[in-house]
Design a protein around this nucleic acid. Structure first.
Length: 769
DNA sequence: AGAGTGATC
């Protein structure tokens, strides 16, 4: 508390910065004329006499005790007091004063609260009582990695504060802004806060920003941390809290200039960990045996088994069910019910995991047991109460990005220690549990890495780099990432954005780049969309882009693969998968589907209702952004013979870097520039005769595949992207030779046509067939 | 010839 002269000096410059921030705030929020700090409540409200950043836990608790709602002045309900009692039992409550002391003493703090500590619901409320945003006109934001979490926590906290959801407490997620000008506490997805930051570099409307679940290290969280570190200098009045679930908080502390830490214990039951004595060669088989053994020998309680993917899970479910039935017949075991759980499962089937375990076969008989076989989704996104046994083979599918060949792939890889701990914790939510790890203790100690690699190290960064540029960060090379991505990944992203003309040769944002950054899309797709009015097909391109940014619309259940493939062929377009997607959407929006009912129509045609409806929301969001940017909404004339050609040209305008050429005398293709040998993914509708194709993605599974492909003409490419198709930069080979011939032909045609002058009217000709 | 962990704007 000593006021040394040096500090005094610093205070002065800080005051200047505060004034600057206030000015900026005034510019963007002219209605608010209050200085950001210091602030004492003088009006007759409940907070009268309290000074911001000097309140105590006692004062806050007194206000919480009523009789009036301190934030609205309204009456408090019975329900409120009932919940308040429960809140006071949460582990964080006993450390409220300790929290406030640190909060007051520092601009940035790290808060570690393990499962059950109450951090997500309580800490933001602690902040409210100290920041008094309802009196200062500022807001408190709390970010979550997932939409459902943002929504459900906001609802809970609205109840705890006895206010209507969307009024004082609200949430903001994509497609849904549930806040008003009364909102003082806003739960939001981290991606949403990042979007806001792109238009408001100082996040001027917030007086405190809480990043929750920071340990998950999502791309958005990582960028926000880097951004907030910079904003904290420009806005000394902004408080920042980094919340994490793991004890591995030193990394956050040291990143934020040795920010102080507060750790609060969680409230979970102990979980006993068992390891296998030796390495398991076949983890799938070991997992199934372990589940059955638990069922045969362990007391009542449900089982959660972690596997890596849909097929593996469905397979395991079948086997466990079969063997379980045999155990009932032969050993008199209790009944067993097995449920799969993975992301692409329809919601009604996902819900089934919450059904109670089966009843004993006869009264007083052996208790029934529920077994859930799940992907990582049960590690973070979904919590299931009643799990007592966890079986953890130690693997998950993880995204890996290879910048050299620009390939995203999903690899089955060993999980991290943190993940293993998280999985084990799932057994202790309702009572003490057991976790069976199907690897040795030595492997756990020596082979598992501490934390999973953050997403930023495993992703293509094209959209991230564009976002950073839009955030006003010019010097990306020296941007202070918590974990800096590989230089090669950054270079690839910069290069790609330059070819797309989103960045100039100097690395500055171009008007096209600025516009592209407004779309929640991969820059390639954004550029394609922005360019589409020139080909008279922005309506069609909106549909295609929307469908490319939702999960696959084609459903292919293992039990009906052949019928599903036939259903798909009914939508097929001879020129490829993008046009096939367009056909699907047009029919989804058509009369026949409406008459049958969209759900039924989707079932009949093996299409995902969920994906198609979410594509519809994406499409309307993208349409609004097009309108806002005065981009023409225009659909082609279906009867015009060049209708599909225009769409294919527009596709090439975005995908000109993702092109493959058929290898002569082979079923394979070569990607241009990289000369990677690839196959067209078996899911395509395209026959194997197309010479040149553009592809949506390059995936590495059992082989190198290009997926979602459309047949194009090479002369379009050299016209659309002459810079990229500068052949000096191509390695010698088959592709280069073909391109040289193409360019030669194009040049010749230009020369010949140059004399004749191309007729301008050709575009408007609507010749009917 | 043969196939999708999870999430987000």
């Amino acid at each position: 508390m000593s006021d040394r002269p040096s500090k005094k000096l610093k205070m002065d410059s800080e005051a200047e910065l505060v004034a600057e921030a206030a000015e900026e705030h005034l510019r963007t929020h002219p209605h608010n004329s209050r200085p950001p700090t210091p602030f004492t409540a003088h009006d007759d409200g409940e907070f009268k006499g309290l000074t911001k950043h000097q309140t105590t836990a006692e004062q806050a608790e007194k206000l919480e005790n009523g009789p009036k709602n301190p934030f609205t002045g309204g009456e408090l309900s019975q329900q409120y007091f009932k919940i308040l009692k429960g809140r006071r039992d949460l582990p964080v409550h006993s450390q409220r004063q300790e929290f406030l002391d640190i909060f007051h003493s520092t601009q940035i703090m790290v808060f570690v609260g393990e499962t059950g500590s109450g951090k997500t619901t309580q800490i933001p409320q602690f902040v409210l009582y100290d920041e008094m945003p309802h009196l200062t006109g500022m807001q408190v934001a709390c970010t979550q990695p997932r939409r459902v979490a943002a929504m459900s926590v906001a609802k809970r906290v609205a109840d705890e504060l006895d206010v209507e959801l969307g009024e004082e407490v609200g949430y903001s997620i994509r497609f849904e802004n549930c806040t008003t000008n009364k909102t003082i506490l806003k739960y939001m997805t981290d991606g949403m806060l990042l979007r806001e930051a792109m238009d408001d570099h100082n996040l001027a409307k917030y007086s405190c920003i809480i990043l929750d679940e920071a340990h998950e290290r999502t791309l958005a969280t990582d960028i926000l941390m880097g951004l907030l570190k910079q904003v904290s200098i420009r806005r000394p009045d902004l408080k920042i809290i980094i919340m994490s679930a793991t004890l591995d908080a030193e990394k956050f502390q040291s990143y934020f200039n040795d920010a102080p830490l507060l750790a609060v214990p969680g409230r979970t039951h102990p979980v006993e960990i068992y390891y296998t004595p030796e390495f398991q060669r076949d983890y799938l088989d070991a997992a199934i045996r372990t589940v059955l053994q638990i069922h045969a020998t362990e007391p009542e309680g449900d089982i959660l088994l972690f596997l890596t993917g849909e097929e593996e899970i469905e397979d395991a479910c079948r086997k466990i069910s079969l063997e379980g039935d045999e155990m009932i017949r032969e050993q008199g075991a209790g009944p067993i019910k097995v449920y799969p759980l993975y992301g692409s499962l329809p919601p009604n089937q996902q819900q089934k995991i919450f059904e109670p375990a089966p009843e004993p076969l006869k009264a007083g008989g052996k208790p029934g047991r529920k077994v859930i076989v799940s992907t990582n989704i049960a590690e973070t996104s979904l919590t299931i109460d009643g799990i007592v046994y966890v079986v953890d083979p130690g693997f998950s599918k993880q995204k890996v990005y290879n910048p050299r060949i620009r390939v995203d792939s999903l690899l089955v890889s060993p999980i991290s220690k943190a993940s293993a701990q998280q999985r084990a914790g799932r057994a202790g939510r309702t009572r003490p549990g057991k976790c069976f790890r199907l690897y040795t203790e030595e492997a756990f100690q020596k082979e598992l890495i501490q934390q999973s690699y953050p997403e930023i190290l495993r992703s293509n960064l094209a959209s991230t780099v564009l976002e950073l540029k839009k955030l006003g960060i010019d010097d990306l090379v020296h941007f202070d990432f918590m974990d800096p991505p590989a230089p090669e990944t950054m270079m690839r992203a910069l290069e790609e954005l330059n070819y797309l003309q989103c960045l100039s040769d100097e690395g500055d944002l171009t008007p096209l780049g600025r516009m592209s950054s407004q779309f929640p899309l991969d820059p390639m797709l954004a550029v394609m969309l922005i360019g589409s009015p020139a080909y008279h097909c922005s309506e069609e391109m909106l549909t295609i882009v929307a469908l490319l940014s939702v999960p696959n619309v084609f459903v292919r259940p293992a039990s009906a693969r052949k019928r599903a493939d036939e259903a798909k062929m009914a939508f097929a377009h001879e020129d490829g998968d993008h046009l096939t997607l367009l056909n699907v959407y047009d029919q989804f929006q058509g009369d026949e589907a409406r008459v049958i009912g969209l759900h039924q129509w989707c079932r009949d045609n093996f299409l995902s209702y969920r994906s198609l409806t979410s594509a519809k929301s994406v499409r309307s969001q993208l349409t609004r952004i097009m309108e806002r940017n005065d981009l023409q909404l225009i659909g082609g004339d279906y009867d015009n013979p060049s209708y599909y050609n225009n769409i294919r040209k527009a596709l090439a305008g975005g995908f000109f870097m993702q092109v493959a050429k058929k290898k002569s005398g082979s079923k394979g293709y070569l990607t241009i520039k990289d000369n990677q040998e690839v196959l067209i993914h078996p899911s395509t509708v395209l026959s194997n005769t197309s010479e040149w194709v553009i592809y949506n993605e390059f995936v590495l599974t059992k082989s190198n595949y290009i997926r979602t492909v459309t047949n194009i003409k090479p002369e379009w490419l050299v016209e659309i992207a002459p810079k990229y198709y500068n052949l000096d930069h191509f390695a010698p080979g088959d592709v280069k030779l073909s391109l040289e011939r193409v360019i030669e032909t194009v040049e010749t045609m230009k020369r010949v046509n140059g004399d004749k002058k191309v007729k301008k009217s050709s575009k408007s000709s609507k010749s009917k067939k």
